[in-house]
Amino acid sequence: MAKKRIIVVCGAGFATSTAGEDEVKKIVKELKIEAEILKKRVVELKTATSMGGADLYVLMTPTTVKLNGPSVNGVAFISGVGKQEVIEQIKQILSE
């Protein structure tokens, strides 16, 4: 299976993206998937998408940028609300 590219998007690039990144690392380890996980601030997103996109975007903040790949709402990793559903969505996307 090819290496997956995952971009975790947040407002400032600190706490929320780190929380999202930690959760994604656990998921890819469980699935035994090799992945490149990048943290990007929302203002960097347009540049990131123009450079090839990603297999998955984990959004820790809302964005109006048109994404060229599937995305999930990663806020559940901070709030805990709907966390298991987001984990299942990520597993489904990365297993395709």
Rank of each mutant, 00 (worst) to 15 (best):
A2Y: 08
K4E: 05
K4N: 01
I6Y: 08
I7Q: 01
V8M: 02
V9G: 05
C10L: 00
G13E: 02
A15E: 13
A15L: 13
A15K: 12
T16G: 06
S17C: 10
T18M: 13
T18W: 06
T18Q: 10
T18C: 03
G20P: 04
E21I: 08
E21P: 10
D22T: 14
K25G: 01
K25A: 10
K26F: 03
I27R: 01
L31I: 08
E34Q: 15
A35Q: 09
E36A: 13
E36T: 14
I37S: 08
K39Y: 05
K39S: 11
R41E: 09
R41A: 10
V42R: 01
V43P: 00
E44H: 09
K46L: 11
K46N: 12
M51T: 12
G52W: 12
G53W: 07
L56H: 08
Y57V: 03
V58Y: 07
V58S: 06
V58R: 05
T61Y: 05
P62E: 15
T64M: 13
N68M: 01
G69I: 07
G69Y: 05
V75N: 13
V75Y: 14
F77H: 00
S79C: 07
Q84V: 09
I87A: 09
I87T: 11
E88M: 13
Q89A: 05
Q89W: 06
I90M: 05
Q92V: 09
E96C: 06
